[in-house]
Amino acid sequence: MELEYVTNIRRTLHENPEIGLKEHKTTALIKYELDKLGVQYDSPLNTGCIAYIEGRSQSAIAFRADIDALPIQEENDVPYRSKISGLMHACGHDGHTSMLLALIKRIKQAHEITPIRSTVYFIFQPSEESNAGANILLSSYEFRIKPEYIFGLHLQPEEEEGILLSKPGPITASATEYRYFIEGTTSHVANKHEGASAAEALTIVLNQLTHIQHYHLPGLDANIIHIGKLYAGEAINTVPSNGYLEGTIRTFKIDNLETIKLKMQQIAKYASQLTDNKITVQFSEGYPPTVNHEDAYSFMINAINKNIIQYNEIKVPYLFGEDFSFYGNFAPSCFLFLGCKNKQHITGLHTSTFDFDEKALLYGIDVMHQIFKRFEVEQ
């Protein structure tokens, strides 16, 4: 019955994907299910919600699921294929939402027989893929009782179905976008010395960016300064009067990120002075690194039943960003990954053919339920 429940919810969500902060139908479905279960919820934002079951004590725990989809055209030939052109649940958020609803159903049914001691929050968070929805939600909501721990669970198609993965400390990287804007002075190529070439400035910036990791950051720290897009110039026979460069920075340590940003600004100043171009660099503050709190991680390890699910500790953090990181700034938190790869489903996250077998979700429901039950025992 539980497999049928999560399958129906997940496939309904999959057919009707919505991008960040526009998850209106998704939110309506979540609230419909909560109303059927008789579970209370708050709506601090226009989309998403925070459901809760109140306990008898002053202790609380929270579980989070993200609900938004991606601007990707689905290529899967399945009956539950996305009905919305150009949008797809390509990161498993439909599965995350389904698992959390199933967890609510389990806990609510038990609560009706024996009232729970601890308040439990279920966070249905909008806009993980963009806009830092976690940060927006936390800035807009005041918990009745601050959670002692917050847990999040994410599907991982690089690992076999039913394997749980995590690690203490950093588990995903920070994600910060940068953009260089270069303004030179054009002239005809015959009088190139009268111009100020944006292409020359862009070349200097490109060269110096590649030196930051080598010369200015600790050798054992993993950092990425990725160049994603660049251009300069207007015509084949004129000195380029404008240039542009954009990319993303991935780090695991905030002090490394600050060093990178400082060096980028210094590079802009140096290239500007040398080439007589006006150069500005802008940063779009993204997601800080997700760092599993030592206490929350230890609690999770002691809670899971390794006879039910295999646990593998990740040796190297992932270099993608994840806005679950903001919860770690609010309360001790721990982020987990659940393998969902099998012979039929082998493609990765954020691809047009990402899919999974819903039976993998049962492992995730069990893990979250085990964490909650241990929390109840210790209160």
Rank of each mutant, 00 (worst) to 15 (best):
A232C: 00
E159I: 12
G233Q: 03
I225Q: 02
A190N: 10
H216C: 07
I225D: 13
I204F: 11
L230K: 01
G152V: 04
N223C: 07
N191R: 02
H188N: 03
F151P: 06
H216G: 11
A198R: 03
A198I: 09
G184T: 06
A235W: 01
K192W: 15
E160I: 11
E194L: 15
E161L: 11
A199Q: 12
H226I: 01
D221H: 15
I182G: 08
A175R: 10
N207R: 06
S187A: 15
I171N: 00
A201D: 01
I171E: 05
G152W: 03
P240H: 05
H154F: 06
E194H: 12
A201R: 01
G219K: 10
L217E: 11
T172Q: 13
A175K: 14
H211E: 11
E200T: 14
L153N: 07
T203F: 10
A222C: 02
E161A: 08
I212T: 14
G169N: 03
V205E: 01
D221Y: 06
K192H: 13
S187H: 04
N207D: 02
G228H: 03
H188S: 15
A175V: 14
N207I: 05
V189M: 03
L217P: 07
I182T: 07
L209Y: 10
I204T: 12
L155Q: 05
H188E: 06
L209M: 13
I227Q: 00
D221R: 07
T210H: 14
G184S: 04
P168I: 00
A201V: 04
Q213S: 14
G219D: 10
G228V: 13
V239S: 04
S166F: 13
L220P: 00
G228T: 14
A232K: 02
S174W: 08
F151G: 06
K167L: 13
S166Q: 13
L220I: 00
G169R: 07
Y215I: 11
S197E: 02
I150N: 03
Q208M: 13
K167Q: 09
L155T: 08
I225G: 10
P168E: 04
H214L: 12
A173D: 07
E159M: 05
A222V: 05
A196S: 00
N237W: 05
L209R: 10
A235T: 02
L164T: 04
F181M: 08
P170W: 15
H193F: 15
A201P: 05
V239I: 14
L165R: 15
I204P: 08
E183S: 10
E200A: 12
T186V: 01
Q208W: 12
I227D: 03
Q213C: 09
A196Y: 02
L164M: 04
G228A: 01
G169A: 09
S197V: 02
N191A: 11
P168F: 05
D221C: 08
H216K: 14
L155V: 09
S197Q: 05
E159N: 05
I204A: 11
P168Y: 06
Y215W: 08
N237L: 09
R179I: 04
T176N: 15
E200L: 14
V239N: 10
P240N: 04
Y231P: 01
Q208H: 15
E159R: 12
Y231F: 10
P157Y: 06
Q156A: 13
G184F: 09
I182K: 07
H193D: 11
E158K: 01
